[in-house]
Simulated assay, not measured.
Amino acid sequence: MNPPAKNKHYYFENNKIAPTAEEWLEGAKQIPGSWWPDYTKWLEQFGGEKKAARITFGNSKYKKKWKLLPACMSKKKQHLSSINN
C-alpha cells in the first residue's frame, strides 16, 4: 500500500445511485491520487477534541493486560537505537 503522497493510484467518485455497479462506474469520475485525504477531512466533522495519547492503560473496571509497547515494538526500538548510535 502506497502512502497518499506517492500519488500512484486513483479512485472513482459518483454521487448518483445506479442500479448496477457497472452503470455507477460508467457515470463515475476518475480522480488521481488517494481517497484517504478526502476521507480524513470528511471524518473530522464527526470527531471531538484532540487529546494526547494515554501513557497508561486500564482503569478500575478494565485492568491493564499489556505493557505499553508490545515486545516486538520494544525489540525494534532497541534495534533502531543500536543502529543510530
Rank of each mutant, 00 (worst) to 15 (best):
F57Y: 15
Y62N: 11
Y11I: 09
P32N: 14
M1R: 14
A5V: 12
D38S: 11
D38G: 13
Y39I: 09
S74R: 07
F46Q: 05
W24H: 09
K51W: 02
K51Y: 05
W35A: 01
A52S: 08
G33K: 01
F12A: 08
K65F: 04
I83R: 10
C72M: 02
N85R: 13
H79S: 03
C72K: 05
F57T: 01
N2H: 13
P32Y: 04
L68A: 12
Q78Y: 05
S34I: 00
K29R: 08
W36Q: 04
A28E: 03
K41Y: 05
F57K: 05
K51N: 01
G48R: 02
E49C: 07
A18G: 00
G47R: 15
S74I: 09
W42K: 12
N84Y: 12
A21S: 13
N2L: 11
F12P: 01
E22Q: 13
W24G: 02
F46M: 09
K67V: 00
T56P: 06
T40G: 14
Q78R: 01
Q45F: 00
K41L: 11
E26F: 12
S74K: 08
T20C: 03
K50P: 04
C72W: 04
N2M: 08
A28N: 03
W35H: 07
H79D: 08
H9A: 13
S81G: 05
E23L: 12
I17G: 00
H79L: 07
L25V: 08
K50F: 05
K63T: 03
N84M: 06
P4M: 03
L25R: 10
A53F: 04
R54M: 00
G58I: 01
P19R: 13
S81D: 06
I17Q: 11
G27Q: 13
F46L: 14
K64V: 01
H9L: 14
K50W: 10
W24T: 07
S82Y: 02
W42D: 14
I55Q: 13
Q30K: 15
L69Y: 02
M73Q: 04
K63S: 11
K6S: 13
T40W: 14
T20K: 05
K75F: 03
Y11T: 00
N14V: 10
L43D: 05
K63R: 14
E23D: 13
M73A: 08
K67G: 08
N15W: 04
M73L: 10
